[in-house]
Computed example of a mutant assay.
Amino acid sequence: MSAISNSATPEPLLEVRDLVKHFPITKGLLNRTVGKVHAVDGVTFRIGRGETLGLVGESGSGKSTVARLVLRLLDPTSGQIHFAGTELTRQRPAELKRLRRKLQIIFQDPFSACDPRMTIAQVVTEPLEAHRISTGKAARRTAAELLERVGLAASDLDKYPHQFSGGQAQRIGIARALTTEPELLVCDEAVSALDVSVQAQVLNLLRELQGELGLAYLFIAHDLNVVRYISDRICVMYLGQFVEHGPADELLAEPQHPYTRSLAAAIASADPHRPPRWDRIMARGEAPSPSAPPSGCRFHPRCPAAFEPCTNKFPVESTMGERTVSCHLHDAAEVLSHD
């Protein structure tokens, strides 16, 4: 379980506490439960208004499950999700629908998120009609304004999704997410399917919109360069748990957890004088199955720095200013510093 605090945001827009999601594994004609997938296992974090929290980790670490739990597209096994002072897990469907106006998502694949039989006008105005914000000509005017705001033209309203490039389609997805005037956008691998040059354009657009509208972002990705560019803080996730958290620049300049170091070591650098302190620390093998997570520190089977306590004892979270790390190496360092 991870506990993350941030004194800079005493009244967070989003606060998640001890969030858990286990998926049952069933077998046989009677669907007897024989195990469970530990998709998310006790994560805690907060996002302030106008802030970007980056969530990074390998595929299968639980990032997208966290996104869907926050949006209440999935019901949590346990834990709490507070949005603007309201506990989302206790809301009735009607109240949850009202709150969802302020919580929107930008998907990884913009084409899959659009019905290919619908025009862009229909795609963008659909949330306006679903939430009974506006209909008809008023909704179309709003859609035209939003398209222009994200760098497209009002004349694009009568086109179909297949007539756009990936970057343009993602701009349409952003416009659609903005229709309900949200306060928090969940960006679930929102630029990973785009070319590098187009990624930069979309990231700059997101930063501009954040400055103009005061949006908060939960930005999920596996590319640390992308996450560093847009995030104020970063949480590093491995097998359903957070292993490190801190300010983006500080965390990536001096990663403390071996897993974070292995991710940072994979970042391409144009600097031939890059310090070699942790560049050679690489994870071994593949991540274990979340249906059978290792005992102790979940990263220990792949960790080049693992030692005896890692195999059977879960590390206590260490705090270093605004940073936290869950690693027995830091437990040992703290003990030595007090001797």
Rank of each mutant, 00 (worst) to 15 (best):
N312E: 12
P276W: 02
A266Y: 12
L263Y: 12
P309R: 10
P294E: 10
P290N: 09
A292Q: 12
R298I: 03
A265I: 04
F314K: 13
P258D: 07
Q241L: 06
I267R: 04
S291F: 07
S295V: 02
P290T: 10
P258K: 08
T260H: 06
G285L: 08
Q256L: 15
A306C: 10
R298H: 14
V316A: 12
P294S: 13
S289V: 06
H245D: 10
A264F: 09
A292G: 00
E244Y: 06
P304W: 07
V236A: 02
A268G: 01
P304K: 08
L239S: 02
K313Y: 10
G296D: 06
A270K: 05
G285C: 10
D271R: 01
P258L: 01
P301L: 05
W278E: 12
S269G: 00
H257A: 04
R277D: 15
M282V: 15
P258Q: 05
T260S: 15
P309H: 12
R277M: 04
R284W: 07
Q256R: 15
P290M: 09
G285D: 07
A270L: 13
A283I: 09
A270G: 06
P247V: 09
E286W: 04
R280T: 14
S295C: 01
D279P: 00
P304A: 08
T311E: 13
F242Q: 04
M282H: 15
Q256T: 05
A305H: 14
R261S: 10
L239G: 02
F307L: 05
L239K: 05
H245N: 11
Y238F: 14
R302V: 12
D249W: 02
N312Y: 08
A305M: 13
A264N: 14
E308M: 08
H273A: 13
A287G: 04
P294Y: 10
P293G: 11
A305Y: 08
E317H: 06
A265P: 04
A268E: 14
H257D: 01
C310N: 09
R284Y: 06
S269Y: 00
V236T: 04
D271S: 00
P288N: 05
P309I: 01
A306L: 07
E250V: 13
A270Q: 03
T311D: 03
Q241V: 15
P275Q: 11
E308F: 10
A292K: 14
S289D: 15
P258R: 05
A253K: 15
G285H: 11
P294K: 12
C297K: 08
N312K: 11
P288Q: 05
P293S: 07
E250H: 03
R298A: 14
R284E: 14
F242D: 01
T260Q: 03
P255L: 11
F299R: 03
S262R: 07
